[in-house]
Design a protein around this nucleic acid. Structure first.
Lengths: 93, 93
DNA sequence: TGAGGTTACGCCTATCGTAATAATG
DNA sequence: CATTATTACGATAGGCGTAACCTCA
């Protein structure tokens, strides 16, 4: 379970398809597909239902994705916080 | 920037030393040291000050760790949510 | 010199991308 | 047949552990 898997899953949920998510993430489709399947295998649950036109989150998937979103946004704030601190070291030494 | 790095950094902050954190995490000391340094290098900022007796978070480090803690706990909730959903598939099919 | 942290290095797993394979309208 | 997802597979990068090195009281 990694932040990358969370980001991929969120992109798939938002875009509705692996293909569109991969384009947005600038990654090959199989990479996204692999990460999603690896996540589902690790958790032992189907996060997305497979439809002819793409992937749509299951009930469990939606609950999972809410927490994943919290984790990803917190990690971005962590990065931003650190970078701001690094910059401050130079603007006001 | 990964959840593992966050967990390692949080353990180091709580234990006050790499050695103690590594023991708690059941990992070799160098692994923890490497992850912390990799994180600091990636962010371009010193998260911990090195003292003779161990590592203590800097000001920036403390701000970073607050967000890291949010990310880690959210990821744990995500896992728990998914596992509960997987279990529910069996208890009430 | 003892207790801590870091660096070097080899192994092993994971991730990626390309290519090939399925399935569905 | 076009579009989507998945699997296979080889190459590369990242993480871990052991061993060696450094620093400071």
């Amino acid at each position: 379970m990694s932040l990358r898997q969370f980001e991929y899953a969120l992109a798939v949920a938002e875009e509705g398809s692996v293909t569109a998510a991969a384009e947005r993430l600038r990654v090959a489709q199989p990479s996204v597909s692999q990460q999603i399947r690896g996540l589902e295998r690790e958790l032992g649950v189907e996060l997305f239902a497979r439809t002819p036109t793409g992937l749509v989150p299951t009930v469990v998937g939606r609950a999972f994705l809410r927490e994943a979103e919290v984790a990803v946004s917190a990690s971005r704030r962590a990065r931003a916080t650190a970078r701001a601190g690094a910059a401050a070291r130079w603007t006001s030494p």
